[in-house]
Design a protein around this nucleic acid. Structure first.
Length: 813
DNA sequence: GAGCACTGC
């Protein structure tokens, strides 16, 4: 069975052009003109084509003008003329495809926000530099004088006042004042994330409480806080600050705080009433991360009870989902704000193909030969496709027509080292054109400047949790319309004339792409959410205020897992172990490991291994000729890891790093220096949590030796007790054991399924061991166990006596 | 026998 579906049949580089037209506020239904579009194809064997296509006004990507009714007027889509003109109908359709579905249903739509000419674009700062040794993204070191700050703020004020949103300050404030929940829909570039919080801050200067603005990503929280502090004319961390994991740049003076939604959830666990906040703004709600969903569920609950009168909630989202949010918060009013994106023309294939990389390359070559200057951003599903495309483009670039710019292909995905990632920001000479081949990382997380052309495969990889099977699979699937739009928008950030080439049929876009991606809470297991709810005393999980109900099966599975981990008792109440697990900033399984390690007296090494597991892309992949050489060099540091597998291997690497902390050593070994620095921060943070936990248990004190010269006997005595370290892990990953079979395969202990050691494991390619324990199971082309350790089967019985007997039968089938 | 998308505490 192939995991890769190719839903977007693609042809060899022939595009149908579809002009997108900017609306002017006149009758938008006026024109259906025909234009001749010439598409010149220059690769070998591809014909030159002339295509006639429609010039139509079904405007998905271009700037929109949202006209809306007087406040609280019910808008019926069928009755567009409540607006007094044809626009009304279109506004609703554009404003939210969700609303489009609800024919005849009522919507509260308020506000009218117009456009103006200049654009607002906060400076993009690369935070991924390998030189960043500091824990904080931004931390003001050199204090600037008050007058300098104010001069800067005054300069920025001109830009701010030119934003469309600025003209509607009073209107926005009025709606927020009159409603406990307001939904604000705004496109990229509308300035909603920077301006609305400031409006509120100016409006409630006598309130001692804070305004919180949540973001799904840490970098976004930090970047926004920095920008807004400048606009506000203060030092970052004074009136305006931010708080994310590992950095809290706030002070007693802070009125406006940007934070990640995970951070706010943590604050909810400490103070259910969020009493220090007057207003909570949920930004980027359309991304529908698990954490954002949970926060919204809690806010709804809070508004229904204790904070009914004095808490203001604002949900901010891109154009989709207005209906979902509005209905969830008891038909809260919806405000629309116009964005500042330039129009992007979309092109589609006229014929389908099954080789996405090949088609991508043809498209790039075609653009390079025929289109004016401007970088090309390509979206591909994964690393493999990107590496292939980069290799091909690099090899053919010298054979391209001399008059065309020279193609410089740059890969971009998370597993690349920071240095490699930074290549996308290089300035190139006139005669070269940058072609960035990226995963989804370029859709939201990394913004590249200079992009004028986007080539979109229409695919992405998604991790899908199958609760029936209890495992996750990594699937290549079609993106959603919302995603397609977001990707296309990357060509319209800086100038007009951007183009997006979609490597699928227009009918595929219209008819088969889903409106938006399935939310994360439906795709993932809900072990962490369920534990969080239990910790907060929610007993009736099935009837909790879920923004989207994850399903009974999924919840029951989570309850089962939590029960077997000891987090819940027979009655489904959270145990003292469960309480601790909920507070630890770790996945529940790793929390169990950590707590077990305390009992087993192997806390120090286990903490270090958990630290390594918590950091992504620590040990980088090496491709090509270097691979064997690097593997050989790495091996000299890990005599134990070679024998015991990946967990111990990581630990040995970390020991070497800890000794000298050499940047060059990391570079040579293809380890991420920055990653190891992050491991240190995780360990440091976890030690603080462990100290809190053990302090609360009087008499059961564990010295965790936070600093080097304070290492106690408990730490140093047992560090080489590998079996005890691995047994601690086994406690949390007892379900992830596979037994070595005589035919060199492995079969899982609980179901007897076939499983393979992932090629990235040190155990890969070695003779079978007695049994393996793995941290993660992924199904791609087949079932793979990642991060494997060699264990003895007898340990399973030792750690969890009930497991082995029960599963014998399935093994011998 | 040969390969993982992206976040968050």
């Amino acid at each position: 069975m192939s995991a890769v579906q190719s839903p977007v049949p693609v042809a060899d580089g022939a595009y149908k052009k579809r002009r997108r037209r900017r609306k002017t506020g006149k009758n938008v239904h006026e024109a259906e003109a025909e234009v001749e579009v010439e598409v010149e194809v220059a690769t070998n064997g591809i014909k030159r084509q002339n295509k006639k296509t429609k010039f139509c006004d079904d405007d998905e990507e271009s700037e929109k003008e949202h006209r809306v009714s007087e406040e609280h007027t019910d808008v019926n889509e069928e009755a567009g003329d409540v607006f007094g003109n044809d626009l009304g109908k279109d506004v609703i359709k554009n404003a939210s495809d969700g609303i489009k579905d609800s024919k005849g249903k009522k919507e509260n739509v308020t506000g009218h926000i117009k456009s103006s000419s200049k654009r607002h674009q906060p400076k993009v700062v690369s935070l991924d530099s390998d030189d960043d040794d500091e824990g904080d993204f931004f931390n003001p070191k050199n204090v600037v004088s008050k007058s300098q700050l104010q001069a800067r703020a005054q300069a920025l004020l001109d830009i701010r006042q030119d934003l469309p949103i600025y003209q509607h300050k009073d209107e926005i404030l009025r709606h927020v004042n009159e409603n406990s929940v307001t939904v604000i829909i705004g496109e990229t570039g509308s300035g909603k994330s920077t301006q609305i919080p400031q409006f509120l801050m100016d409006g409630v200067s006598n309130d001692k409480r804070q305004i919180a603005v949540t973001q799904p990503r840490r970098v976004a929280a930090a970047t926004l806080a920095k920008r807004v502090s400048e606009e506000h004319g203060c030092q970052l961390g004074q009136e305006v600050g931010y708080q994310v994991r590992f950095s809290n740049i706030t002070s007693a003076k802070t009125k406006l705080k940007y934070l990640t939604d995970g951070m706010l959830l943590r604050e909810i666990m400490i103070d259910k009433n969020l009493s220090k906040y007057s207003t909570v703004i949920i930004d980027e709600a359309h991304e529908r991360t698990v954490l954002t969903d949970l926060v919204m569920g809690f806010l709804k609950q809070l508004l229904a009870t204790t904070r009914k009168k004095d808490l203001k909630v604002i949900v901010m989202s891109a154009t989709l989902n207005a209906k979902l949010f509005s209905e969830f918060f008891n038909n809260a009013p919806v405000l629309f704000i116009e964005g500042r994106m330039f129009g992007v023309d979309n092109y589609y294939l006229t014929e389908s193909t099954d080789d996405i990389v090949d088609t991508m390359i043809r498209a790039v070559v075609q653009i390079n030969n025929g289109e004016p200057r401007g970088d090309i951003l390509c979206f591909l599903p994964g690393q493999e496709e990107i590496d292939n495309a980069v290799a091909t483009l690099t090899s053919i670039s010298s054979q391209l027509p001399r008059e065309a710019p020279l193609i410089v292909a740059c890969p971009l995905y998370a597993a690349l080292s920071p240095q490699q990632q930074l290549r996308i920001f290089d300035k190139l000479p006139e005669n070269k054109r940058k072609v960035i081949l990226a995963t989804n990382i370029a859709e939201t997380s990394i913004t590249v400047s200079g992009v004028k052309y986007v080539v979109d495969s229409g695919l992405r990889k998604v991790k899908v949790w199958r609760h029936q099977l209890g495992l996750s699979t990594l699937l290549t699937t079609p993106i959603s319309k919302a995603s397609a739009k977001q990707r296309a928008g990357r060509a319209g950030r800086e100038a007009a004339g951007g183009k997006c080439f979609r490597l699928y049929l227009e009918s595929t876009f219209n008819e088969s792409l889903p409106l938006q991606q399935e939310s994360e809470i439906l795709r993932n297991d809900v072990i962490y959410p369920v534990l969080t709810l239990k910790k907060l005393g929610v007993d009736d999980l099935l009837n909790w205020t879920w923004l989207e109900y994850p399903g009974k099966e999924s919840i029951l599975l989570a309850l089962n897992v939590l029960y077997s981990l000891g987090a819940l008792n027979d009655q489904g109440k959270v145990t003292s172990v469960g309480e601790k697990m909920a507070m630890l900033p770790l996945p529940p399984q790793l929390s169990v490991v950590l707590l077990t390690a305390i009992e087993n007296g192997v806390l120090a090494p286990v903490l270090e291994i958990i630290g390594c597991l918590s950091v992504d892309n620590l040990i980088l992949n090496v491709n090509g000729e270097l691979r064997d050489e690097v593997n050989l060099k790495r091996r000299q540091f890990c005599p134990l890891g070679t024998q015991w597998g990946d967990l111990i291997l990581m630990w040995e690497y970390y020991q070497v790093f800890k000794e000298n902390k050499l940047r060059n050593w990391c570079k040579e070994m293809f380890f991420s220096y920055k990653g190891f620095k992050n491991v240190e921060r995780v360990i440091h943070q976890l030690k603080q949590y462990v100290r809190n936990i053990t302090d609360n248990n009087s008499g059961d004190k564990t010295d965790i030796g936070d600093d080097e010269d304070n290492e106690t006997t408990q730490l140093s005595n047992n560090t080489k007790d590998i079996p005890m370290i691995l047994k601690s892990f086994l406690k949390g990953f007892i379900t992830n054991v596979a037994v070595g079979m005589p035919d060199r395969s492995y079969r899982t202990l609980n179901h007897g399924d076939l499983i393979s050691v992932h090629p990235s494991s040190t155990l890969f390619g070695k003779p079978n061991v007695d049994a393996i324990m793995y941290i993660e199971y992924v199904y791609t082309s087949k079932g793979y166990a990642r991060t494997c350790s060699s264990i003895e089967l007898s340990w399973v019985q030792e750690v969890a006596p009930h497991i082995l007997g029960a599963s014998r039968t399935s093994l011998h089938q």
